[in-house]
Design a protein around this nucleic acid. Structure first.
Lengths: 156, 156
DNA sequence: CTGTCGGCTGGACAATATGCGCAGTGGCTG
DNA sequence: CAGCCACTGCGCATATTGTCCAGCCGACAG
């Protein structure tokens, strides 16, 4: 849970060149291989590093349209709505937020026209009272974590 | 850009057990190692696989609070706002969306109180007219891609 | 029908990385 | 001052990688 400077450098290095092995990392960071291995193990069991899954680009898969939908949920239907949305592959992410029964979800679609189909499928469920959708035009800051890691590593 | 069934299985396997090597994958998938290597190379140069960066959990880093902020931007100030938000480490993601000068950004903070500081820093910039923030309470569907990959692989 | 082509197989090779263990060192703490 | 912990530097057996190759097969154009 506590991240020191070496952990920070390790994470940044790992983010920039994910394919390099433990040995190469130890060389770059100027520490022993065992240290890097131990740090990595610790970061993973800490949960700081959740995994190394491939980052797949939905656009390259044929889903270039991204949108965010705010859903208003009927009281007490939360669990059902969750289960429903889980079954929709185009729902990439779902959050419940403050506010009266609100949820926020990230959607992708094959085209703007296809987005209509996705939205229909999403809101075609009893517990959802209302939905408002915002289509993403640009993504000036793609999901990133490095600046935060650097801040967390420096702040101690 | 076209994903066939083997690609799909490869991506799913890779997502589930990211640490396994090419050789092990070829064994699991029942194909030759060269095939797996070729497919992987293709997926990467296609851009379908963007990378293998570590998935870092902000909560484990000491930032357990997530929020989404909708920002209303003054006409023509978009570029400046983007540049401003890029400098804030707690801004993990930024999108421009349909609507008059709207942006949506994902924030993290050390606590609800700390969120106030982050928001102040975010909106403490000239081009931002108004901001409305929704704090995330639960995350029933964490960012996922596998269902979409499976659909893309099946659909052909 | 026939030739060409791309993708897959199964195998080989040297080079490299991994998992694992161990002794020694230095700093911190009770 | 002793104990503890993290780090170093080393070695070893094993596994994996990168990179070749020849051969097979199905798709496709002529």
């Amino acid at each position: 849970m506590a991240i020191d400077h070496l952990d920070g450098r390790l994470l940044v290095l790992l983010a920039k060149e994910p394919r390099i092995g433990v040995l190469e990392m130890s060389r770059r960071l100027g520490v022993a291989r065992g240290t890097v291995q131990a740090r990595l193990d610790r970061l993973q069991s800490n949960g700081v590093i959740r995994g190394f899954g491939p980052q797949v680009d939905p656009a390259a898969l044929g889903y270039p349209v991204t949108a965010f939908a705010t859903l208003q949920i009927r009281q007490g239907q939360g669990a059902d709505v969750r289960a429903h949305l889980t079954t929709v592959p185009e729902v990439l992410e779902l959050h419940t937020t403050t506010g009266s029964g609100d949820m926020l979800c990230r959607l992708v679609a094959r085209s703007n026209a296809d987005l209509q189909r996705v939205i229909d499928r999403v809101v075609g469920f009893d517990g959802i009272v209302r939905a408002s959708t915002a289509i993403v035009m640009e993504n000036p800051v793609p999901l990133r974590i490095i600046p935060l890691v650097e801040q967390a590593a420096t702040e101690r």
